[in-house]
Write a protein that binds this DNA or RNA. Structure first.
Lengths: 211, 211
DNA sequence: TTGATAATTGAACATCGTTCATTTTTCGGA
DNA sequence: TCCGAAAAATGAACGATGTTCAATTATCAA
């Protein structure tokens, strides 16, 4: 019986659970080491035997949120293709941000590590999300190589994120939920129309630059 | 001679100067009350006679950044109209984010006040920026009332911000500067093409819904 | 069972933003 | 010009924070 590893994993899980729940209920700001360890049922120093530091622990909690977001997007996009898939993804992303607001916020509020690079396993979670967008773009008339398609997917994902993000943070000028949904619909519609128009332009005038 | 007000204004200005400079050189994370007051040449408690608290002071420093960003965008957009203006705005926004990265970051890293509402004078600064986008959109074939145009402007601004933001924070998957610029160009081009295509659709089929 | 090794603990530490009693400065009226 | 009041400036002290570390406890291989 490998009691060592088992306890270690149990402690890590308890801490991530506690952190995730506290972020969900109080937000990232209402998270401190003492309440956390009390929730998890370990000593204050326990954090540092299980994780590098508190930021590392928060990253793992965020990874759980990222996975949940992935499931949400996967469900939303199921059976849809192309533009319909993009619409479904945008709406689902908005829905997730609104219903799981504090968890979603923590994904971006949390300060990046000093060297500004995230662990590979965290980046991978984000790439996973982009795959849905890449697949949808593949079903549109986009004459681009694979890597350019991934860059496009990143951009469109980031664009939708930006729209949702600035709207939800009324820190700047926010929109109501209905208006936000309408804006997202309009946005995706314009985007797909633009893609179709450029594709039509290419077939009509094959010599035109594709810069 | 109103020495009181004069000293008060001087102190406030010295503190905002110090905060702004520290944010510019060290980032928002490298900002603490003690270094700040030493830079500004006042006592630790001085912050709280001049401002409500440190967050309030940071907001004022951010307002200065916002004004600088406004000037940058205004210069970039000067003499350009419609799609060209949008391209210029996106490029200028990217340039600002890259060259004034820490100041620009502070605009969004800084946690919003608990009630999630920013002071009016701060919101006004953001609305100011949107005016450039609204004006550019007015010069495109967008059959929308004024308030819808403003919502569109917010969305497109937010979209560009999202693209730039996620790209710069390599926390997720970042792009090189050249690729980012190319992505922005492509994005604005698709957007304007989409707007034009929808306008063409309207004139060809005036009964179509505009939902 | 035992010695070595790893994990756990929580008091102590350094640092942070903020407060407040004290001191200094400012100002209108005598 | 002087004086009492009121405002502002000061910096030691406070409470809360994340992190460390010497002491304690638990685990494992022989």
């Amino acid at each position: 019986m490998a009691k060592r590893e088992e306890k270690r994993r149990a402690l890590r899980e308890a801490l991530v659970d506690a952190a995730w729940n506290r972020i969900a209920s109080e937000g990232l700001a209402g998270l401190n080491a003492r309440d956390l360890t009390r929730d998890a049922g370990c000593a204050l120093g326990g954090i540092y035997t299980a994780f590098r530091d508190l930021d590392d622990l928060v990253m793992h909690a965020n990874a759980r949120t990222l996975a949940l977001l992935g499931d949400t997007l996967e469900t939303a996009v199921a059976g849809r293709r192309g533009g319909a898939a993009l619409h479904a993804l945008a709406e689902a992303y908005m829905g997730f941000a609104l219903t799981r607001r504090r968890l979603w916020n923590a994904l971006f509020e949390h300060p990046p590590p000093p060297d500004d690079t995230a662990p590979d396993w965290f980046v991978a979670g984000h790439v996973e999300l982009l795959r849905f967008v890449v697949q949808a773009l593949r079903e549109l008339p986009l004459d681009e190589p694979e890597d350019a398609l991934e860059a496009r997917a990143r951009s469109y994902f980031a664009a939708v994120h930006g729209i949702v993000s600035i709207s939800i943070h009324s820190k700047f000028v926010g929109l109501s939920q209905d208006r936000l949904a309408a804006e997202l619909t309009s946005f995706v519609r314009v985007l797909t129309a633009g893609i179709a128009a450029e594709a039509a332009g290419r077939t009509a005038d094959p010599q035109a630059s594709r810069a």
